[in-house]
């Protein structure tokens, strides 16, 4: 059994992956922290590696600290290198 975490991508992140969502699947019962989930994303999506240093995970539309626990039903998005205005 496994648990899926859907992470939304925008802008250069979506361009790099070619998708607007990446699905990360972890063994059921795994409750990753934000930094753990981002490490898995980086491993599974190596094309994002050059950008990950500047990247934060948004959990339910707020920037998460590295130790914040993430649940599969959270609203997740990778945010970084924004340049509006």
């Amino acid at each position: 059994m496994s648990t899926a975490f859907d992470v939304q991508l925008f802008g250069p992140y979506a361009d790099a992956v070619g998708e607007s969502v990446v699905r990360i699947t972890l063994p059921k019962g795994t409750d990753p922290t934000a930094s753990e989930l981002m490490k898995v994303i980086e491993q599974e999506q190596p094309q994002l590696r050059p950008m990950m240093k500047e990247t934060r995970l948004a959990v339910n539309r707020e920037f998460a600290g590295p130790d914040q626990m993430v649940r599969s039903d959270d609203d997740l998005a990778l945010i970084g290198l924004v340049a509006g205005g």
Binding site: G11, V82, G84
Partner: peptide, 11 residues
């Protein structure tokens, strides 16, 4: 601050 923290991207 907006350019750092507000999730709006431009292409």
């Amino acid at each position: 601050t907006m350019k750092r923290d507000v999730p709006i991207w431009k292409r």
